[in-house]
Nucleic acid binder design. Structure first.
Lengths: 206, 206
DNA sequence: CCCCAAATGGCAGTTAACTGCCACTTGTGC
DNA sequence: GCACAAGTGGCAGTTAACTGCCATTTGGGG
């Protein structure tokens, strides 16, 4: 939930939002990524109209559902990664935790239009830790100095995309985490082409 | 078009299929990724039913439309890449041509459910060249020996995914091509985790 | 050049993502 | 403990992706 954005949601409304998120995770796990929103509303015990009032569209619901159960799932890995005295190993830990989680929640991810992009936008703590680990790695000289948090953000999104080429529950993605991290650690390589910022929310399309 | 699959399409039917593909590219370019299929049928001068008879669903249409105009757009770059005596530079050329093309056709790509995955499946010549360049690079010792064509295929898909975090028409993706290629070239790095095969068409979901 | 299989397109129907409208209920601040 | 704003849910309507049915047209092999 982007609770920060909404001011004072009435208690019952907040409870309903919680229920909807729980139902969403349940329904997507049970019925796959094409599960109808009506079913989610039904299981949450609310009307479809309430679901739409709380979450403007499917993509936002999915984003919220991800953020909902996932932040906690990731918390231990974040702790472990930040506690590691080898920054590169910490980075790999964090990427792997994120990918593993994304694979477990792949139905929810697949339900959004643009799974790769969405994942990257989810979970500020994840992104923050990623940034911190990157800075540490750079100070230790094991990560390329020209990488920014935004780069890591995008790299995570790219890695999530590779999940769609694999069966669920496997660990094939580890290979690509390793491959990409080796790129991130190529401190001797020449300078990278320029960084351009993320697309702004209102931009793009048409 | 997966012309190889269909046996003897009647002349007029084949002509219509061509028209539909042309109309699709036009319509997606004009109206964005949410353009209705009916509009495509209209511009092609066929009934919606005919469109669906030729292409079982939106995703197949999109895949075909991509393959349609794109193979030629890529042909020159493929030639240049294969002709380059520096295999790494050839590889970068090819990736960049593919990404540049994907960015130009981003509306069509975005119209499919799973743009990252689909791109990787499109255009056998592209994948073949990628494989060839990889082998050459490996023989020259500049590309990691443990990479397979399937890996390159997935890497391409990952790179396409990064487009969704950028405004169209930019060249920000060059940065990530360079970054990933540096990973591909980390010949001194430790061995990668195991490769697992692509998901089979019938697999996954639910 | 004729006949039949192949191809077509209109229409009605289904499902899902939304939206607006509106009467009804229910927290909560005063 | 009341009044009013906040929240709710049903219903009807829209748009788009499909599917089945079927009467009609047409290409091309014999």
């Amino acid at each position: 939930m982007a609770t920060g954005t909404e001011r004072h949601l009435r208690a019952d409304a907040a409870r309903n939002a919680e229920r909807i998120l729980g139902a969403a995770r349940e329904v997507y796990a049970d019925l796959g990524p094409d599960a109808p929103l009506e079913e989610i509303a039904r299981r949450a015990g609310v009307g479809i109209r309430t679901l739409y009032r709380r979450f403007p569209n499917k993509e936002e619901l999915v984003r919220a559902a991800l953020e909902h159960g996932i932040a906690e799932q990731l918390a231990p890995a974040i702790g472990q990664a930040l506690g590691d005295d080898d920054p590169k190993r910490g980075l790999v830990t964090l990427f792997e935790a994120a990918l593993s989680m994304a694979d477990r929640e792949r139905n929810i991810l697949a339900a959004a239009n643009n799974s790769g992009t969405i994942t990257a936008e989810v979970s500020a703590p994840l992104i923050d830790s990623l940034s911190l680990l990157t800075r540490r790695g750079q100070e230790a000289g094991v990560i390329r100095a020209d990488l920014t948090p935004e780069d890591m953000h995008r790299v995570l999104g790219m890695l999530v995309g590779v999940l769609w080429t694999m069966n669920p529950g496997g660990e094939g993605w580890r290979r690509y985490v390793a491959l990409v991290v080796d790129g991130l650690c190529s401190v001797a390589a020449g300078p990278l082409p320029p960084l351009v910022p993320f697309v702004e929310p209102g931009d793009c399309l048409i």
